[in-house]
């Protein structure tokens, strides 16, 4: 999930809020990201978001910023693409490993098995940029992890 910030929350008068929308902060779910990524990339724009998980370590680390773009040509083995996972329907960013009769096979670099056959319409865009997570984000994640551990230890004792 990624943070969604709305700068006009501070710009639209408070008095507007009963009648007219104003921004708010929320998190995008994986399903929301998938829909918006697909639409945005289809319009020729790029989509940049925070990657979560470890399935593509070392190429993509948890918390890295990934930019996805529309690609005219066919995917090439070795490229990293965003796709809708054929089994669970979730947005995933994995590597193309082979061409099949009806699509492509993809797999996370750290995964033991592939994702199954990905039909062409499930491929959303190619990863064109990976930015390492900023130190601040790393610290935030570390702080959150420590807080979770502390809470777990607290509950165990009480």
């Amino acid at each position: 999930m990624v943070r969604l910030s709305q700068e006009w929350r501070h710009k639209v008068k408070t008095a507007c809020s009963p009648y007219v929308a104003y921004g708010k902060e929320r998190l995008l779910t994986n399903a929301e990201q998938l829909v918006l990524l697909r639409e945005t990339v289809a319009h020729g724009a790029h989509w940049r978001f925070e990657a979560l998980g470890h399935s593509m370590r070392q190429a993509i680390r948890d918390g890295d910023m990934v930019t996805v773009a529309h690609e005219n040509g066919d995917p090439k083995p070795g490229d990293i693409w965003a796709c809708r996972h054929p089994r669970n329907g979730r947005l995933v960013v994995h590597r193309i490993v082979a061409r099949t009769d009806h699509g492509w096979l993809m797999r996370g670099d750290q995964c033991l098995t592939d994702d199954g056959e990905i039909p062409p319409d499930a491929l959303l865009g190619r990863v064109i940029r990976i930015e390492r997570r900023p130190v601040q984000r790393l610290r935030r994640k570390l702080a959150a992890r420590l807080a979770r551990l502390w809470r777990a230890a607290w509950h165990r004792e009480s």
Binding site: W8, G23, L28, T40, A45
Partner: peptide
Amino acid sequence: ILVPLTADTTDADAELYTLNETG
């Protein structure tokens, strides 16, 4: 959810907007 496409890259971290029911 509104996604402005004016920039070359849409940053999911900073440039999306939501409208409430009335919006």
